[in-house]
Nucleic acid binder design. Structure first.
Lengths: 336, 336
DNA sequence: GCGCTTATTGAAATCCATTGCAAATGCACC
DNA sequence: GGTGCATTTGCAATGGATTTCAATAAGCGC
């Protein structure tokens, strides 16, 4: 059914090689032949077969990106950064939604060794450092967002988790809070660990004793955040503010507060992380940390494409700064 | 660097053909040979080259889906439906974010003729009916969500736009409203046309005169929705309720109302469409129409994969019902 | 118009897995 | 053991574009 390069060649009275050169903008063809070939391509509505091209050239000009849930604006924004950058370099992007299932993540990572994609971007993967390291050592190109791994071959892009977390807690302290709870994400993720570290650092700096009872886990999800907050309340350990590892968890906190008639920010200050689209629409608007989501995606894509093009070696890591957005949920003056 | 099928074959003492059969679960291999080959594959960490496979088999087992913006939960949910269904059939999904740019959409649709994907799903495309028709007539498989086109070869999945729109307006009428404005999406989209039709039908049924001045366009975007609502207000044509073609537009209405001190629902009832994640978190929560987003995605993917597998012919179209969610923005009793 | 250099073009090998067809092996039964 | 049939296996062709290398054409100076 479809036309092949040889069909175009015959009709244009040239060889397949010449057509190929025209398709790839080679400088080895006369303008005249080029126009002639282009005209035939147009007439025949010819489209080069991607599989054949990939097979011969040993590259697909495609990046993959695995996220736990594309219906979460944190990931969606990162994807947008990747996508737009890729588009600018004529790369395509395969987006893989692992649906928070580790086995799906494993399946998708297989797209690298089987050469469906030239490189894979992992965002907040379940995969262990060892697995990632191992994988990269086999010569598979992967990039990380929001995480790093001890392997020279794995570029990554993160934010200054420790730093902004410490700023968040300092802000709460400045607002007069002394008992500040922390609801983290996945217990063993690097992001979570660093955010926790920032939290502790701020307490230390202000000589506020650390209370292990004020730490809970929320798995970055609304529902788990809700549960975690309820657990905190039921401990009868007093606290007046809570810092949550992301906005989803904060949403859970909002829900719990409404149910238990706890006023935000009067009775409970809340600060999240991510600046999800929803955060600004809540009442009161949620204080949060604006993550450079788009920029991180753009950056890692740039790096990977650079590596694939053998461009001047880029720095392996990039840390992009985040900014604190103080809104009504943690500052009474902005509350309305 | 990478191993090829022939390397595996040699090491296992069989032919490439046999290895291929093992890889494809052919019944033509003894259990014994199969185990031997699988062992070698494992040992060598062999991964069949996707491009070669695609080239030879003339299919990629990949679907594409083009959406205007993946950072919009309406589209994200559809994608999830597609993705999960595809995953269940061992299909992959390439997600294309056209970023609301027609030229990007055109570029992405090219993935079908060049055989990067076996079929493409279009959600709310800018493309004209003629272009889609033309494309399909050339033998390219495409599926539509939220739209249809007069071509036997193009399966689609939509909701009952006319019906639910009419229900929305009936609901507003029942609440006592007589001057009801409508802010539509893209003026020439089928979705928009049908929603408008439902709006008119409800007015007709209740013998309420139609006022052209109460119609404006919001392009399905928050900002455009805001602008449209402001235009409505500035006409000095009285109205007490507004039906917006989607929740994004309603968000714009909320913003305008806050600025102009218009109370929802006391001074202005608002109903949107889509049940975006945000809607339920607004104050008052936004009345809206729950669209079967996930189901539509799942359905169209099922259809396309069915066609690609030559399975029993499926019905070309599916219409899935939507349900009205009445919340505080249009019903004072639920307002709190 | 001739010889030489340089710019274009073409022939053929290559990328790697799949599959129709033929060959070989295995098995049952006489 | 031999014959016949059913299973397994292998050979070789195939899918379609790219690219090296050799061949040809064009361009230039004299």
């Amino acid at each position: 059914m479809d036309n092949k390069i040889i069909d175009v060649a015959k009709r244009a009275g040239v060889s397949a090689a010449t057509v190929s050169r025209v398709l790839n903008d080679s400088s080895l063809v006369t303008e005249k032949t080029k126009q002639k070939v282009l005209k035939v391509i147009e007439e025949m509505d010819y489209h080069p077969n991607a599989a054949a091209k990939h097979l011969r050239s040993q590259k697909t000009e495609t990046l993959g990106i695995i996220v736990p849930d594309i219906n979460n604006s944190y990931f969606a924004e990162i994807i947008k950064g990747v996508e737009n950058t890729a588009y600018g370099h004529k790369y395509k992007v395969i987006i893989c939604d692992s649906d928070n299932r580790p086995e799906k993540e494993l399946e998708y990572i297989g797209l690298v060794p089987n050469r469906t994609v030239d490189a894979m971007i992992l965002v907040a993967p379940f995969m262990s450092d060892e697995m990632i390291d191992d994988f990269a050592s086999k010569g598979h190109l992967i990039g990380l967002v929001g995480r790093s791994v001890d392997n020279e071959k794995v570029p990554y892009c993160t934010t200054d988790n420790v730093n902004f977390s410490s700023q968040v807690v300092q802000h709460l302290i400045k607002q007069g809070h002394r008992q500040i709870a922390f609801i983290g994400g996945y217990a063993d993720s690097a992001e979570n660990y660093e955010r926790m570290e920032g939290y502790m650092k701020a307490l230390r700096d202000s000589k506020i004793p650390f209370q292990p009872g004020l730490i809970e886990n929320g798995d970055f999800e609304e529902k788990r955040g809700y549960d975690a907050f309820i657990r905190l309340l039921d401990k009868n350990l007093p606290f007046t503010a809570v810092y949550t590892a992301n906005d989803e968890i904060a949403l859970g906190v909002y829900r719990a507060c409404r149910e238990r008639q706890i006023r935000i920010p009067e009775d409970m200050a809340v600060v999240g992380v991510d600046n999800n689209r929803i955060s600004g629409y809540l009442l009161p608007p949620l204080s949060t940390v604006e993550q450079p989501k788009y920029a991180m995606g753009a950056r890692i894509a740039e790096k990977l494409i650079g590596i694939l093009s053998n461009n001047a070696e880029e720095a392996r890591e990039t840390v992009i700064e985040s900014t604190l957005l103080i809104r009504g949920s943690s500052d009474y003056n902005k509350s309305n």
